[in-house]
């Protein structure tokens, strides 16, 4: 997965050559779906309110293949976000099955050991959320490079790639050495996107990736994500912006309460 990072060693400037290099890279081809969900049920039990149970997902089934982008649609409160978070293991599914193609084998995430979920997250499944969970005192460029470093990438190459993505996402160079805590919401979100996209995850979950971006930056992000899709990543996302959904999704999945 990491074997083409060397082509990015020419520096942080976003040139078209680098853009196409980024485009050419991508997960290995795999026939058929890489993410399969069946019978997924999820409810929340609030013990403080007399063990009140709030069912959210009932018997959800879906499958996503490389090159696909599945948009989750449905009214507010239908459970789109819950579904996405359950896929990532952030929420604990009650029953059912979430299987990902990981390490050339199927890995079940429902009821999996934490280390299994973490390994899937490290190498196979990325998540782009609206909010950056800021780590105090860490420079922006290092925040972005971290997921790649966790895969034992060469530190210089990881840094180059982080700078490349930051430049691509219009984060001014003077901000790179600063911790992102004081950045604007849009800047933090773009830092977060850079961090989530630095590894070529075969599966990418997207929760409103363009929510607080201006038009220019939104287009950049959409372009980046669609490159990932075309390079063979399997995408599942929530896109409220119809224009963005139009550009990215090639299938929709109705989530009903």
């Amino acid at each position: 997965m990491m074997n083409t990072t060397s082509s990015l060693s020419s520096g942080p400037r976003a040139s078209s050559a680098l853009m196409s290099a980024l485009e050419a890279r991508g997960p290995k081809e795999h026939d058929g779906p890489v993410l399969k969900v069946a019978g997924l049920t999820k409810s929340f039990v609030v013990h403080a309110h007399g063990d009140l149970a709030l069912p959210v997902l009932r018997d959800v089934a879906l499958a996503v293949s490389p090159g696909e982008c599945l948009a989750l649609v449905g009214p507010s409160g239908a459970g789109k976000s819950t579904l996405l978070r359950s896929l990532y293991g952030n929420y604990r599914a009650d029953t059912g099955s979430i299987r990902v193609h990981h390490d050339n084998a199927w890995t079940e995430l429902v009821g999996a050991e934490p280390r299994t979920v973490l390994d899937v997250r490290r190498r196979t499944m990325g998540f782009v959320s609206q909010f950056l969970r800021v780590i105090p005192r860490v420079a922006t460029v290092d925040v972005v490079a971290e997921p790649l470093l966790r895969l034992d990438a060469d530190p210089a190459e990881a840094r180059d790639r982080a700078e490349f993505l930051l430049a691509l996402l219009n984060i001014p160079q003077r901000l790179w050495p600063l911790p992102p805590a004081t950045f604007s919401g849009g800047e933090q979100q773009r830092v977060n996107i850079a961090r989530s996209l630095i590894v070529d995850y075969p599966i990418l979950l997207l929760d409103e990736p363009t929510a607080s971006l201006d038009a220019g930056n939104r287009d950049r992000v959409v372009e980046l994500i669609s490159q990932r899709r075309d390079a063979g990543s399997a995408l599942v996302g929530i896109f409220h912006d119809l224009g963005v959904r139009e550009l990215l999704a090639n299938r929709v999945f109705e989530v009903s309460p």
Binding site: V45, V46, H47, R85, G89, N90, Y91, R92, P114, L118
Partner: peptide, 18 residues
């Protein structure tokens, strides 16, 4: 017990929720 973000974002036990 479980994955840190899961326990904190989707706590199951009454005490954890509290």
């Amino acid at each position: 017990d479980g994955l840190t973000d899961q326990v904190l974002d989707d706590p199951q036990h009454a005490y954890t929720q509290m």
